[in-house]
């Protein structure tokens, strides 16, 4: 065992223990650690934005190099703050409109192509899709299960007709696929959370206490 002499390791370790103390019950140590974390993260982001975005990308070109075109984004950006002045608060809609317009224009075609068309293509029963499972001839079976699973799950979300007869049967099968999906997601969530615990314990037992290498 070789205890760390690095003060930053000690700070990290003590804050980790303060956060872990919430598992016993809420307490002042936990609250202090939580507030310090939120404050430090926000302070870091704000200063980084200032020094790496606003100053080099806006203030320097506009005020030092005299590039007057930059006054347009500067004014549009300033309009965000009009929400604090009720009389002219409506001006806020201009930057929000520009922002949403840009994102919607860029996203809709990209998302339809990448997340709808490509995903639908992935369910079609083709030799390429059979091969994508890397499972030899079993790939055909997995593709058929995937195909059936997608159709049955979609039928579960079809609410314009009562779930009786064929629709009732497919939607019940769809429910089974959904439950399997939830189970897999839960299993992965457990894995993720335990991994985080292991990561912190590697730090506490290794970097701080020196019990493990």
């Amino acid at each position: 065992m070789s205890l760390s002499v690095d003060p930053w390791i000690w700070i990290g370790a003590l804050f980790s223990l303060a956060i872990f103390s919430f598992l016993y019950k809420d307490n002042p140590f936990y609250r202090v650690a939580e507030h310090v974390f939120v404050g430090a993260a926000n302070g870091y982001a704000v200063t980084f934005y200032w020094h790496n975005v606003l100053v080099p990308a806006l203030f320097n070109p506009l005020f030092r190099q005299g590039q007057l075109l930059f006054i347009i984004p500067f004014v549009i950006g300033i309009l965000y703050f009009t929400r604090f002045i009720p009389k002219i608060g409506w001006l806020l809609r201009i930057p929000i409109g520009i922002y949403i317009g840009y994102y919607v224009g860029a996203s809709i075609p990209a998302y339809i192509q990448a997340f709808i068309i490509k995903q639908v293509q992935g369910t079609i029963l083709t030799p390429q899709n059979f091969a994508s499972w890397s499972a030899g001839s079993w790939g055909i079976l997995w593709s058929v299960i995937l195909f059936a699973g997608v159709l049955c799950t979609l039928s579960y979300f079809y609410f314009s007709k009562e779930h009786k007869g064929v629709l009732g049967a497919t939607s019940r099968i769809g429910t089974i696929f959904i439950m399997i999906g939830f189970g897999a997601a839960f299993g992965y969530t457990v894995m993720a959370r335990v991994s985080l615990l292991i990561g912190r314990l590697q730090f506490l037992l290794g970097d701080w206490l020196g019990i493990i290498r």
Partner: peptide, 26 residues
Amino acid sequence: VTAVSASKYFSYYQTGQFSGLMVGMK
């Protein structure tokens, strides 16, 4: 990707949109 988001990302691997995929600690 993290294990939490694995079930979402496997579909992109299956369609070939990802050239490969690592999930979580494993």
